[in-house]
């Protein structure tokens, strides 16, 4: 495996930017009308964070678990893996995050206390707004086909960003930050390397 050290991450980005974004277009066409379910997920999360019912943390964690699992299977493994040889590893990372959210969020109910820091709440809420509302508009704003939009619960980047936003708003176990942060790093490097 010594040869592996002679590779750089960009050596594994063996697809063009056009091909990458086109995957989202094909994916969106293939999974319609699941977008309506994703919108429903977003609405439930916003409602739960706003009204703060007792069940909020568990429900939000449950929706995140479903989202991370869906993205791992439907996008990363079934679609992205066809053009990206390490996307199956990414899928495993997403499944791991789903497992962690199940354990800490659903089973142990550790997403049950909101942070007291106003700045953290502000950052978390802002990031959530950007992810839910602005992120799907990026293709339209950047002159690409609007069909290439990426939505929370369906695409990896907005799912990771929304998760980070929610972790910011709650007093969350630090371990839950690891996979989303690694994904943001990987995705950023991928976008820069294409």
């Amino acid at each position: 495996m010594g040869e592996m050290t002679s590779y750089r991450l960009s050596d594994f980005i063996l697809f063009s930017q056009a091909t990458y974004f086109r995957q989202f277009e094909l994916y969106n066409q293939a999974i319609w009308p699941l977008h309506l379910v994703a919108i429903l997920f977003s609405c439930v999360i916003i409602f739960a964070l706003w009204k703060k019912p007792a069940w909020a943390g568990r429900i939000i964690a449950g929706l995140l678990v479903v989202s991370w699992c869906w993205v791992a299977w439907a996008f990363l493994y079934e679609r992205f893996y066809k053009i990206h040889l390490v996307a199956n590893w990414y899928a495993m990372g997403f499944i791991l995050q789903a497992g962690l959210l199940t354990w800490y969020g659903v089973i142990k109910n550790q997403l049950n206390t909101f942070v007291t820091s106003q700045s953290k709440t502000f950052i978390g809420s802002g990031l959530l707004f950007i992810t839910f509302i602005l992120y799907p508009l990026i293709p339209f704003m950047s002159g690409r086909s609007w069909l290439q939009f990426e939505m929370f619960s369906l695409a990896p980047d907005p799912t990771a960003l929304a998760t980070l936003a929610i972790l910011f708003i709650y007093k969350s176990p630090k371990l839950l930050y690891v996979v989303p942060l690694i994904w943001v790093l990987i995705s950023g490097v991928t976008l820069l390397s294409m």
Binding site: L14, F15, T19, R22, Q23, R79, K82
Partner: peptide, 13 residues
């Protein structure tokens, strides 16, 4: 064919 032909199952590509 590195990068350029890696188009997945996109029928147009």
């Amino acid at each position: 064919s590195s990068r350029t032909f890696n188009v997945g199952d996109d029928p147009v590509a």
